[in-house]
């Protein structure tokens, strides 16, 4: 029962993929590397905000036609966090997988192309808090794992010699494992529980610009802002913004 969502997700993907591979399509791979600012406030870890900077890396593949697109993206990030109030330090790591399927819904008068679709996502956000107090140096882990289904909307527009696009995704149904205190409480088990929209609120907004070229490779940048708020017995907030340079390599098909 706990992992029924995995079966549901597989069913959705298997319904989407057959209709998808039949049309003429372009397939591209993206590799991004950038700098990310992370801020979190998890009362289980500390009453104070922990914030800091670190590298972020993304790897993605998208396949699209003039009417539909399927994006698969893996993102990781690492940041050294610090509380300006308590002086506490924490090493934060995040890993996220996004699978988005979008359909073109037309162009507005400003020649902006609009797409809407669904998103499957899974995010693990783990902090390793370093206690260097005089009780002896030790550490403790805190965090959240969230996965589920959501809605996504994309707007894109040709700008000069490039293409600028904005993607917004929000989860609508989520399954969350966020231990009451530290990760020790879970033992080795993942304990996902359904979280309604009232309990888990999040968004993931990215703005990308890429230079359109006839060559197979092109460059661009992506600004991303994401936020997740999980309300259980307390409210846990995780926010990130990053700016990455992105290399896109066309694997097959034509330039969009």
């Amino acid at each position: 029962m706990r992992y029924r969502w995995v079966g549901n997700a597989v069913a959705v993907v298997s319904l989407v993929l057959p209709t998808y591979v039949s049309a003429q399509r372009t397939t591209e791979a993206h590799i991004g590397l950038g700098l990310e600012e992370t801020a979190l406030r998890n009362p289980a870890e500390s009453p104070y905000r922990l914030a800091g900077w670190g590298p972020t890396f993304s790897l993605g593949v998208d396949r699209r036609s003039s009417t539909s697109a399927l994006d698969v993206t893996l993102r990781t990030g690492h940041a050294a966090l610090h509380s300006g109030v308590s002086g506490g330090t924490s090493r934060n790591g995040v890993a996220a997988v996004d699978i988005r399927y979008l359909r073109a819904v037309g162009q507005s008068r400003g020649r902006v192309s609009w797409w809407i679709g669904t998103q499957m996502h899974a995010t693990a956000d783990i902090s390793d808090h370093q206690y260097n107090g005089s009780f002896g140096s030790h550490n403790d882990q805190f965090g959240i794992v969230a996965s589920g289904l959501g809605a996504t909307v994309r707007a894109s527009h040709k700008l000069g010699a490039g293409l600028i696009s904005s993607d917004l995704a929000v989860p609508l149904a989520s399954w969350v494992d966020s231990p009451y205190a530290n990760l020790k409480m879970n033992g080795d088990a993942l304990r996902l529980q359904f979280a309604s929209l009232g309990r888990l609120r999040a968004f993931d907004e990215s703005i990308s610009y890429r230079v359109l070229r006839s060559q197979r490779a092109s460059i661009g940048w992506t600004y991303r802002l994401s936020y997740m708020q999980y309300a259980s017995d307390d409210v846990r907030r995780f926010a990130r913004q990053s700016l990455s340079g992105v290399i896109t390599i066309r694997l097959s098909g034509r330039e969009p």
Binding site: E37, T38, A39, L40, R41, P47, Y48, R49, A51, S83, G84, V85, G110, V112, A155, H157, I164, S166, E205, I207, Y223, L225, Y227, R237, F238, A239, R240, Q241
Partner: peptide
């Protein structure tokens, strides 16, 4: 469209999103 993008970017203050310290 550009104004919308700029507004979203300017709003990206993660400290504000997670709220003030007690």
């Amino acid at each position: 469209f550009i104004v919308l993008i700029a507004a979203i970017t300017a709003a990206g203050c993660v400290d504000t999103l997670v709220g003030p310290d007690p």
